[in-house]
């Protein structure tokens, strides 16, 4: 199973690149010029998030170095370790509901401490790939429609996040 997953992961990117470029050539797109234009936008996006990333990585760095993270993780981790969720993942799950970039700061911290290919590293990678910033998305989108009563939206969002978490624990255990 793990081998099948790894093989599939490896061929995905080349297949996607081939498909997109081939589709572009067939439809007579100036593929190279468009690519460069898009790449320019990509660089601009990264340049724009640099200040945010500096702020957040400093924030997480300070919080971790102070020993607070360890303290919080130990408190909550005792409860969650039983179901395969290590202490370091607990703050990550909480923060991810509010801010993707703040969660990124924590992710990088976990990668630094535990490595990317350990159980914790893999769990973090999968978890971050299958969850969204519930509260941020809800507040921005509902604001656009001026809606104040959100009915069962939060319940559904939390349920699907729990499903993603469960799937991540199982899959990371298999890798």
């Amino acid at each position: 199973m793990a081998e099948v997953l790894a093989n599939f992961s490896n061929i995905m990117i080349p297949v996607i690149i081939f498909y997109i470029v081939a589709h572009g050539v067939i439809n007579r797109v100036q593929v190279y010029e468009e690519f460069v234009g898009g790449a320019k936008e990509g660089i601009r996006t990264v340049a724009q998030i640099l200040p945010t990333l500096v702020g957040l990585m400093v924030g997480v760095g300070v919080l971790r170095a102070s020993g607070f993270m360890e303290f919080l993780g130990k408190m909550l981790g005792r409860l969650t370790a039983e179901i395969g969720i290590p202490a370091d993942i607990v703050p990550l799950i909480l923060v991810k509901m509010f801010s993707s970039s703040a969660a990124t700061g924590l992710v990088l911290d976990i990668f630094k401490t535990h490595g990317t290919d350990s159980y914790i590293g893999m769990l973090t990678s999968i978890l971050m790939s299958c969850t969204e910033t519930i509260f941020y998305t809800m507040s921005v989108y509902f604001l656009a429609a001026k809606v104040s009563k959100t009915r069962y939206t939060l319940a559904g969002a939390l349920l699907s996040m729990a499903a993603g978490l469960a799937a991540s624990v199982v899959l990371a255990g298999m890798m």
Partner: peptide
């Protein structure tokens, strides 16, 4: 991020991520 922090196989996350995403979406 995985590349940056020295993963042996950064793309290894793709398949499990797709499965987990499918599950949470279903």
């Amino acid at each position: 991020y995985r590349t940056q922090y020295g993963s042996v196989n950064p793309a290894a996350v793709i398949a499990p991520a797709i499965l987990a995403t499918l599950f949470s979406t279903v």
